[in-house]
Simulated assay, not measured.
Amino acid sequence: MTAPTTATSGLLRYAMRLDAVLVGITGIPFVAAAGWLSSHTGIPVAMYYALGVFFLVYGVVVYWLAGLERVRPGGIATIAANAAFTVFFVAEAVVGIWPLTGWGVALLLGGALYTAVIGAVQYIGLRRLA
């Protein structure tokens, strides 16, 4: 059973739900158009499939975690995942493991910016918990 959103957990719950919806929606084109995206970015098709499926599952799980009565553990896990993805996206853009196009670099750095910002908002929400 889920508890109603309280004033102290509202920001964290909102940021987690927003993250879940945005990331989950992003998983759809990653799976549906993996080949097209790969040809324009240089990121391997297999990576699009893997990330797409992960993003879809992440969306469902994080949305569910945001509704739990004790939101702190799920919030910490979500913040940690966003921090890890920020590092991963920047590292991939900088190290050059894949033959990235300009669009590929932009996609990875844009992803890093998104995960850093949403993770920071979630962290602020976590700090507001009583």
Rank of each mutant, 00 (worst) to 15 (best):
M1T: 11
M1V: 12
A3M: 02
T6H: 00
A7H: 01
S9R: 00
L11W: 09
L12W: 03
Y14A: 12
M16F: 00
M16P: 01
M16C: 02
R17A: 03
L18Q: 06
D19T: 15
A20V: 07
A20R: 06
V21E: 09
V23Q: 06
V23C: 09
G24T: 05
I25N: 04
G27T: 11
I28R: 08
I28S: 05
I28E: 10
F30L: 14
F30V: 07
F30C: 09
A34H: 06
G35C: 07
W36P: 00
W36N: 03
W36T: 14
L37T: 13
L37E: 14
S38T: 15
H40Y: 13
G42R: 13
G42E: 15
I43H: 12
P44Y: 14
V45G: 01
M47W: 15
Y48G: 04
Y49N: 13
Y49R: 13
L51I: 13
V53C: 00
F54P: 01
F55Q: 11
L56A: 12
L56S: 07
V57T: 12
G59L: 07
V60C: 01
V60Y: 10
V61R: 05
L65F: 14
A66Y: 06
G67T: 13
G67L: 04
E69R: 15
E69I: 09
R70L: 04
R72D: 13
P73Y: 11
G75E: 13
I76W: 12
A77P: 00
A77F: 12
I79H: 00
N82D: 14
N82H: 13
A83M: 10
A83G: 15
F85S: 02
T86D: 02
F88K: 06
V90F: 08
V90D: 07
A91T: 09
A91D: 11
A93C: 00
A93I: 08
A93H: 03
V94W: 14
V95F: 10
G96K: 03
I97R: 11
P99S: 10
P99W: 07
L100W: 11
L100D: 09
L100E: 12
T101K: 06
G102A: 02
G102W: 08
W103Q: 14
G104C: 04
V105Q: 05
A106Y: 04
L107V: 10
L107S: 02
L108W: 07
L109D: 12
Y114L: 03
V117Q: 07
I118K: 09
G119W: 08
G119P: 04
A120W: 15
I124L: 14
I124M: 12
I124D: 14
G125R: 14
L126H: 13
R127G: 01
L129Q: 12
